[in-house]
Amino acid sequence: MVTEKDVMHVGKLADVGIDESELKEFSDQFTRILDYFAVLEELPEERTHAGDLHTILREDSITPSLPSEDALRNAGETEEGYIKAPRVM
């Protein structure tokens, strides 16, 4: 059972913004979806994810990268070569 309070909490963690009017819809849907996920309960918890794959490492060498004007071209607001973000505090 996923309560409306749970939906509020997860919506806040995920920064997706929840309207009051959506709470019931999401809590009903999440309850049904998690009921479906319950089939996984009988399985053990897998602690390693790698399977039979192995990591391919490369030399940490300097290569050409995107010029900063190209990297900034799609930004909302920029100032002196930096991207402007909302205030944290």
Partner: peptide
Amino acid sequence: IRYGPAVNTKKRWHDAF
């Protein structure tokens, strides 16, 4: 912040996002 329509940078961080 980096792409797409711009966020309102006047709001607080979490509210803005």
